[in-house]
Amino acid sequence: MKRRRVPALLLDAAAIVAALLDAWVHVDPDDRAAAACALLAAISLTLRRRLPLLTYVLALPAAFVTDAVFATLAALYTLSSLTRRRSLLVVCAAAFVTGDTASWSWPGPEFADLTDSGNLITVTYSLATAAAPVFLGQLVQARRELTVRIAEISKARESERQLLSDSAQAQERARLAREMHDVISHQVSLIAVRAGALQIGNRDPETKEAAATIRRLGVQTLDELRHMVGVLRASGSDPVELTPQPSLTDLPRLVDSSGIEVELHTDLPADLPAAVQRAVYRTVQEALTNVRKHAPGATATIGVHHTGGTLRTTVTNTARTRPALVLPGAHYGLIGLRQRAELLGGTLSAAATPDGGFSLRLELPVQDPG
């Protein structure tokens, strides 16, 4: 706000100084009435932004009795830039021309004879002098209104672009929801059904256990897919979590359903931040997924410990004992985990072990409890 007020104050001060200089040049100090009118006109410019019409009325007498007309013209310009009443501007300009061209003396004013070419030139000059601030003020007012309209149009266009973007996103969400519902959910349902049939129709304990795990994971995936479909279809509503967010208490269930021989060692406080718990869970989940895909038959060891203000999570697996199956993958798992760790101020490192296995290490800064 200060940056807008300072130039306005400077302009007002400059206008008052110019009006006083105009009065000093054109007004005889011995003519007290003329000096008073000129001084009143200069001082009235302090009101020109708040009371433009009153300012002009106070400045107008100076144009009748003196040649110091700068204050009157400045007041006329301000009035023209702030009012929409064209008839008022015509009356004010005519009043200035009348005062500027008439000779005021007792018993009344003596108006110029327009049949005289000299007087006609004088009146024409006065008309031009009065018209200049009126037209300039109207031009400034039109420019100000045009600036406001342009800002409104720009805002409306931005809103329109945002609406188009939201509409495109909503259509894409709807398309993804249909694809997930019609294709992915259908295929996962078939996997769960076939796994259930395999579990019932097979007598081998290991096969039954594997089929039960596949069926349980399929059902869990279906539940998450249904939730995701609902989120995608709820375009424009309040943000919601894609799935119920896991915590460290869910690690044992994750390990049990992994289908891998895993040793889990944890020693953690119960009040870790939710974001840290999710990061640890997703890291362990991705590591176990990679073990299943790339190291069939391997065993894994998971350690999650909190010491010295740092939460360290390590997932190490042995070398594979069976050939790995070729499975599709986007190769973004570790990249996403590393980005998640960096957002939390931590680091993620991954490297092969000397025995042919693999090790994943996550370190996150966590304040000691208490």
Score class of each variant (00 low, 15 high):
residue 8 A to N: 14
residue 12 D to W: 08
residue 13 A to V: 09
residue 16 I to Y: 05
residue 26 H to T: 06
residue 40 L to C: 10
residue 43 I to A: 14
residue 51 L to S: 13
residue 51 L to G: 08
residue 52 P to K: 01
residue 62 A to Q: 07
residue 63 A to L: 04
residue 67 D to V: 03
residue 69 V to E: 06
residue 70 F to Y: 10
residue 74 A to D: 13
residue 77 Y to C: 11
residue 78 T to M: 13
residue 82 L to V: 04
residue 86 R to H: 14
residue 88 L to F: 10
residue 89 L to H: 00
residue 93 A to M: 00
residue 95 A to N: 00
residue 95 A to W: 02
residue 101 T to P: 06
residue 118 G to V: 05
residue 120 L to G: 07
residue 120 L to S: 07
residue 124 T to H: 09
residue 125 Y to P: 00
residue 131 A to N: 05
residue 142 A to N: 05
residue 143 R to N: 02
residue 153 I to P: 02
residue 153 I to F: 09
residue 155 K to C: 13
residue 156 A to D: 11
residue 159 S to A: 14
residue 165 S to V: 00
residue 168 A to R: 14
residue 172 E to S: 14
residue 176 L to D: 10
residue 183 V to K: 13
residue 184 I to K: 11
residue 184 I to F: 09
residue 185 S to M: 02
residue 186 H to C: 09
residue 186 H to L: 13
residue 188 V to R: 08
residue 188 V to D: 01
residue 191 I to Q: 09
residue 193 V to N: 06
residue 193 V to G: 07
residue 198 L to K: 02
residue 199 Q to S: 15
residue 209 E to C: 00
residue 211 A to P: 10
residue 220 Q to A: 15
residue 220 Q to W: 05
residue 221 T to W: 04
residue 222 L to A: 04
residue 222 L to C: 07
residue 223 D to W: 07
residue 224 E to F: 05
residue 225 L to F: 05
residue 229 V to I: 15
residue 233 R to H: 03
residue 237 S to W: 01
residue 252 P to M: 07
residue 253 R to D: 12
residue 253 R to P: 00
residue 256 D to C: 05
residue 261 E to R: 13
residue 271 D to I: 04
residue 272 L to S: 07
residue 277 Q to F: 04
residue 289 T to Q: 04
residue 290 N to W: 03
residue 291 V to C: 07
residue 299 T to N: 12
residue 303 G to A: 03
residue 314 T to P: 08
residue 316 T to R: 03
residue 316 T to M: 01
residue 317 N to R: 08
residue 318 T to Y: 00
residue 321 T to W: 01
residue 323 P to W: 09
residue 323 P to L: 10
residue 324 A to M: 02
residue 335 I to V: 15
residue 345 G to V: 00
residue 346 G to N: 08
residue 348 L to Q: 08
residue 354 P to E: 10
residue 357 G to Q: 02
residue 369 P to R: 01
residue 369 P to S: 00
residue 370 G to I: 11
